[in-house]
Write a protein that binds this DNA or RNA. Structure first.
Length: 469
RNA sequence: GUCCCGUUCGUCUAGUGGCCUAGGACACCGGCCUUUCACGUCGGCAACACGGGUUCGAUUCCCGUACGGGACGCCA
């Protein structure tokens, strides 16, 4: 039997890093086993679901490269089928109408809490003999088996044993006639041939009741794998402060999707001492049964390191357009794509994100001269540097060809004549060309900047350090 | 409150009774490399929550406690 699983987000917000991790694990599990996975949007809560959220979730998955075999299916379009099943249960005497009001239910829960009991519906309408109150809307509740334990073997969590008496009669259909989540998942998972469910641990306690539903319907129960949750830096639930932002935020922050996937897979799973994985490796090596059971905390520093690793593994062809984009967002109107590609190797080891890369490479793309960092200029653009800089400028003007080797040769000539150490000239030149004290190797910078721009910037620096006063 | 789940360096993790004076990675600190910054490299700091068992022997098995998380909705 081929494995069929699904990723089933509810479109009440964006796809955050935790949801992305669930989607990734679904994808890996399906691909590893040559199975399929489908995307199902669980939008039975019409109040809170939105179309933008759907679009953003799909875009997030697309960016991560997690492409489903089927879907997206929309749960809200399957209402008729859900209700059909509810009535089937009703007809079979496995469900009943409940006329309890909100107030009644609230009162019941309050009393139970006061008695230190778990708040749950006591099933009073199940035993109702008298005719229903006329005109009062009813919900349909499922008759949960009483007594005994329900146990199932979770592929991640292990054997779970759950006393049936902890469960109450869950609502299948709301008083407005709409099906609830627990009904919809069971029906959809069955109808869509899902035989394996990967989802967050927050669904663990829903599982026993869903299994009861499957059994009442005479349907085969899927295998479950409940993933440990992701926590923020303070150990609490993920919030906007620490990571629960849209995955697309990471795209805009200059992260590569493969780095995000790599980071996410290592949260709860490992393979020997390997840290860096390609998607192919993840698919080949990933075993859902090896996933750990404890929650993990999101650590941006490690994501950044991994991003650096993947940045280095990526080709300049792939990265150049991304760098151009990042530069544009930093106000560079028309970054030269050719220059971006040429210059990329110089930054790939110096930046952890594309955004950082763009900041560092910015000086290459400036139309005007870079502004001298005041501290850098004060330290390196000093009057005594005028003669060597002028001499360098003169030699460079005639350098032929304009390449790294020639440029370096002229540079060394100046060094010798003025008895300077490399750094003594390199730093002033660096400030002249880039505005600051940090950049790739100075000969590469000269070369890639080109003769015209290099000379102009040197002139500007010479004028600056020769200024009166 | 009740039920379920979890607990190895700051963080992600390895570890399935002796190989553990607990391994790797990120972060951090220091050396080397060096034209700056990085990269690289070498080294350092740093953990089995606690208490009982079981056993010749527990990080590994059992029980309890503490702490953390999840669930308890006409949300998903």
């Amino acid at each position: 039997m081929t494995l069929r699983t699904r990723f089933a987000p509810s479109p009440t917000g964006f796809l955050h890093i935790g949801g992305a991790r669930t989607a990734l694990f679904c994808h890996l599990h399906a691909r590893h086993n040559r199975g399929q996975w489908l995307l199902r949007v669980e939008d039975t809560d019409r109040e809170r679901s939105s179309e933008e959220a759907v679009a953003v979730i799909i875009e997030g998955l697309r960016w991560l490269g997690l492409v489903a075999d089927e879907g997206p299916y929309f749960q809200s379009r399957r209402t008729a089928r859900h209700l059909e099943v509810a009535h089937q249960l009703l007809d079979a005497g496995k469900a009943y109408r409940c006329y309890c009001t909100k107030e009644e239910l609230d009162g019941m829960r309050e009393e139970q809490r006061a008695r230190h009991e778990k708040p749950r519906y006591d099933g009073r309408c199940r035993r109702r003999q008298d005719p229903p109150p006329p005109g009062r809307p009813a919900v349909i509740r499922f008759i949960t088996p009483q007594g005994g334990d329900l146990h199932f073997s979770d592929r991640i969590q292990g054997d779970i044993r759950y006393p049936n008496d902890e469960l109450d009669d869950l609502i299948l259909v709301r008083s407005d006639g709409s099906p609830t989540y627990n009904l919809a998942v069971v029906v959809d998972d069955h109808d869509m041939g899902i035989n394996f469910v990967v989802r967050g641990e927050d669904h663990l306690s829903n599982t026993p009741r869903q299994i009861h539903l499957f059994q009442a319907l005479g349907w085969e129960v899927p295998v479950y794998a409940h993933m440990p949750l992701l926590h923020g830096a303070d150990g609490a639930k993920l919030s906007k402060r620490h990571g629960a932002v849209s995955v697309l935020h990471y795209r805009d922050a200059g992260f590569l999707p493969e780095a995000v996937n790599n980071y996410l897979v290592r949260l709860g799973w490992s393979h020997k001492d390997q840290e860096v994985f390609t998607m192919e490796e993840m698919i080949r090596l990933f075993e859902i049964g090896e996933v750990g059971r404890s929650a993990a905390i999101f650590d941006l520093a490690k994501l950044e390191w991994l991003n650096g690793q993947h940045l280095r593994a990526a080709s300049p062809e792939r990265l150049a357009p991304l760098l151009v984009e990042a530069l544009q967002r930093q106000g560079i109107a028309n970054p030269d794509p050719g220059l971006a590609k040429a210059v990329l190797p110089q930054f790939v080891e110096r930046a952890k994100t594309l955004v950082e890369m763009a900041e560092k490479a910015r000086f290459y793309f400036l139309e005007a001269h870079p502004e001298f960092d005041p501290a850098a200029a004060a330290k390196h653009l000093t009057p005594p540097m005028a003669p060597p800089l002028q001499e360098l400028r003169a030699l460079l003007a005639d350098a032929d060809p304009w390449d790294v080797t020639t440029v370096e040769a002229h540079f060394r000539t100046v060094l010798e004549r003025h008895h300077l150490k490399t750094g003594q000239l390199a730093q002033p030149v660096r400030v002249a060309l880039t505005g600051g004290t940090v950049s790739p190797g100075i000969f590469e910078v000269l070369h890639c900047l080109g003769r015209e721009t290099s000379l102009a910037r040197l002139d500007k620096a010479i004028a600056f350090l020769s200024r009166p006063g």
